[in-house]
Amino acid sequence: MNKTTNQKAWFLVLPVLVLVAFSAVIPLMTVVNYSVQDTFGNNQFFWAGLEWFEEMLASQRMWDALGRQLMFSGIILAIEVPLGIFVALNMPKGGFWASFCLVMMSLPLLIPWNVVGTIWQIFGRVDIGLLGYVLDRIGVNYNYTQDTVAAWITIVVMDVWHWTSLVALLAYAGLKSIPDAFYQAAKIDQASRWKVFRYIELPKMMGVLMIAVLLRFMDSFMIYTEPFVVTGGGPGNATTLLSIDLVKMALGQFDLGPAAAFSIMYFLVILLISWVFYTVMTNLDNRGS
């Protein structure tokens, strides 16, 4: 068969390119420009060279925020991915209850970030919140505004509540795509439940799971609104994640230069980790096919 080679379809991508240029590329270039200069407002800039990068690299504040951020992303991935798989495995395979579960689980995904934050902020309050009040009455010392551990538990549980269903839905889609023949073969071989999971379900879910991990990682690594609404980064700096610290620096203190240098390093870390995930994902795909 003669295939015509014609690359003109690429022009259809142009509108997207223009949009991305204005929404991402030009702002990013501006950030790079800011990162090597100092400003006191009034659109006046003074050359600062690599000073801000040096300052940020030596800043304990940035390393602490990065540490907290990595811990947060690590914890929520370690909870959400296994929990999501577990939920997907135990969901009804079809019929009314399958649709019911799907709709119920999509609900948290539809709620805007700031509303999720507000829900949990009120839910956890000792005076009027159901969770905080009950915990307080049964004698648990829980106060997310003063206790670091309580604050961390609150934001982690909030994220798990908000996003586990995304992992579960993706894993469920992966499970649904496995033909029945695989299970029948496993039954004939008298494979145990664990072996069915390990050698049939897990490999077949790998693709969607990598997407789930990538999405959850990037999203949690950039998280701002929810913890900001619940704890405001406190108590002290205990839940000041990278983006919260960045906003404090850029808009609170108006230190545009250091904040720009900070953003670039933040961007590079996200780029690196996303690239690693992406490479692993496409290589798994290639090996599979």
Partner: peptide, 15 residues
């Protein structure tokens, strides 16, 4: 373009 605060070194970098 003034709001983008261009400098020669960053312009060369992007070029």
């Amino acid at each position: 373009m003034a709001w983008m605060a261009w400098t020669w070194p960053t312009a060369i970098f992007f070029l």
